[in-house]
């Protein structure tokens, strides 16, 4: 029953997205044009950016991309949505949204990463570790920001608020991710960043649990 409901909501979100393609194409446009800006800025002076700058720019792109993609999570109107939201229970709604956002973010991160490497070159020695970092970070960003956008959607100044609430709370995750990518760029094996990976996984689980526990209180108001 629960999974059926979850699946229905997920399907609804996917259908809406496939029909309108607004958030995917919007964020992709943002990612691609920013990468082009970086490319034009640094082109000519080949290898002019160091590995640290390379990774900083990549994570800034990812962070703002996630912000843009998740900001509109709870803005849907229309009769169909209203109907779904009346019938489904709040815990299913938040889980469906989180799962949908994770999938969306993974897709965006994959495309963004590929395009970034294409234009800016690859500075990572052990790519597998870096890909793991990208994977964990996109999952983490999306669960985190889903709850933040749910909170900010309930206030009057929400687009402003998602940045105010989201940035400071997401910094711990970014610090871990940057640590892992530093190790990956240096070519260290996964064992060296195992601690960070485990903490990151723990943060993901905690934020998912908190969304599950806290969202009903938001939804009621």
């Amino acid at each position: 029953m629960f999974f059926q409901e979850l699946w229905q909501l997920l399907k609804k979100d996917l259908k809406v997205e496939l029909r309108r393609k607004t958030s995917i194409s919007g964020v992709l446009l943002y990612l691609v044009s920013s990468i082009f800006v970086l490319y034009f800025t640094f082109t000519g002076a080949a290898n002019s950016i160091g590995a640290a700058t390379w990774s900083a720019l990549f994570w800034i792109l990812m962070l703002f991309g996630a912000m843009n993609a998740m900001a509109t999570s709870f803005y849907e109107t229309g009769e169909r949505n209203q109907y779904y939201y009346c019938v489904a229970s709040p815990t299913t709604i938040i889980l469906a949204k989180a799962v949908y956002n994770i999938l969306l973010m993974l897709l965006l991160a994959a495309i963004g990463y590929a395009f970034y490497i294409l234009l800016m070159g690859n500075k990572v020695e052990s790519s597998a570790v870096f890909v793991l970092a990208v994977f964990l970070a996109s999952a983490g960003f999306s669960t985190f920001l889903t709850l933040v956008s749910a909170i900010s959607a309930k206030s009057s100044r929400s687009p402003f608020l998602i940045a105010v609430l989201g940035f400071p709370t997401i910094i711990p995750m970014i610090m871990l991710v940057i640590k892992i990518s530093k190790n990956a760029i240096a070519g260290l094996a996964l064992e060296n960043s195992m601690k960070e990976v485990l903490v990151l996984v723990a943060i993901n689980i905690i934020s998912l649990t908190l969304s599950y526990l806290l969202f009903p209180y938001l939804w009621r108001s």
């Binding site: 909170i151 723990a202 908190l210 806290l214 209180y217």
Partner: peptide, 17 residues
Amino acid sequence: RIAAVYNIFAFAAMIPL
């Protein structure tokens, strides 16, 4: 209600920090 939700969330985000 919203502030209480954010407070719990913020505290959880602060612990690893």
